[in-house]
Amino acid sequence: MKAIIIGATGATGQELVQQLLDNPDYSQVTVFVRRAVPLQHPKLTVEVIDFDRPQTWLHKVRGDVLFSCLGTTLKAAGSKAAQWKIDYQYQYDFANIARQNGVQRCVLVSSGYADSRSRFFYTQMKGQLEQDIMQLGFPQLLIFRPPSLIRPNTDRAGERWAIRVLNGLNKIGLLQSMKPMPTAVLASALIQAVKQKPLGTFILESAEIWALAK
């Protein structure tokens, strides 16, 4: 199969790229990025694009499965409008183009508690993205709602603190459904879901994600 990835430079995306390159089921891995990446591999194609100018790259979005892992934080983006552009608009536009080009499968990394009716900006945004991508008509659509992620060498103080708290609660049997998940585990589950799930739309929560990764 031929994989397409956006968000390949993020923590989950980097794990996913490496696992796909090591996976014999995939003959080609194409990543669409805003800046060049140092990784080289016979199966890897790197497309450096301007997400704001889809007319310059839409013809290149071709393959069997789209993995959509793009995302940022409000702090990094600088404003809600900027975060919406990256987390919602770029992902929706790319998925729309992929579907128009005949891509049959889409794997979307969303968020725990995603809900278009949420009072909270982030979960509302993710829920809206889920709903709108569902309307594109992918024969296989896999939406992942992972718990807090353990990113290698993260510099996010709030994330490190939350993971420590959750790990402590997990040890005494509390909040097991929110057990923090290493990005390598999530990446493995993304790949396994494409192979194991039939056609249709599936929303995968924490417990099923862990099970797929095993």
Rank of each mutant, 00 (worst) to 15 (best):
F121L: 10
G102R: 00
F94V: 13
S111W: 07
D50M: 09
E130R: 11
S118V: 08
C69V: 09
V48Q: 08
D87C: 13
R105W: 03
D64I: 03
A81Y: 12
D87S: 04
Q124P: 01
A98D: 07
R62F: 05
I97S: 10
S111V: 11
R119K: 02
Q100A: 07
Y90Q: 11
S111R: 09
F94G: 12
Q128V: 15
Q131D: 12
I97Q: 08
D50Q: 11
A114H: 00
A76T: 06
T123Q: 06
G112A: 08
F67C: 04
V61I: 08
A77G: 02
D50V: 04
Q104N: 13
A98R: 01
D64W: 01
H59S: 01
G78V: 05
G71S: 10
L74V: 11
L70I: 07
D87L: 14
A77R: 02
K85W: 13
N96D: 08
Q55R: 03
G78D: 11
H59V: 05
L108D: 07
Y88M: 14
V48C: 15
V48L: 10
L74S: 14
K60L: 15
W57G: 10
Y90W: 11
R117V: 04
S118H: 09
D52R: 02
V48A: 14
M125F: 13
A95W: 00
V46H: 02
I97V: 12
Y92E: 07
Q83T: 12
Q131I: 13
H59A: 06
S68Q: 11
L108C: 03
Q124Y: 12
W84A: 15
G78R: 05
Y90M: 11
R117C: 04
R119Q: 07
S110L: 06
Q128D: 15
A114R: 03
S110Q: 03
G127D: 14
F120E: 10
Q104L: 12
A95T: 13
I97W: 09
M125C: 15
Q55Y: 05
V65P: 00
S110V: 00
S79E: 10
N96K: 04
A98N: 09
D115N: 06
L129E: 06
Y90L: 13
F120N: 06
F121C: 08
L66W: 01
D93R: 02
E130W: 06
L66S: 03
R62E: 09
D87K: 01
Q91E: 15
G112N: 07
S79Q: 06
R117M: 02
Q128M: 14
G71H: 02
Q83W: 05
I86C: 01
A114F: 01
K80P: 07
N101P: 00
K60D: 12
V46D: 06
R117G: 04
N101S: 01
F121V: 06
G102Y: 01
S118R: 04
R62M: 03
Y113K: 00
D50Y: 05
F94Y: 13
L74Q: 14
R117A: 09
E47Y: 04
V61G: 05
H59R: 01
F120P: 01
Q89G: 13
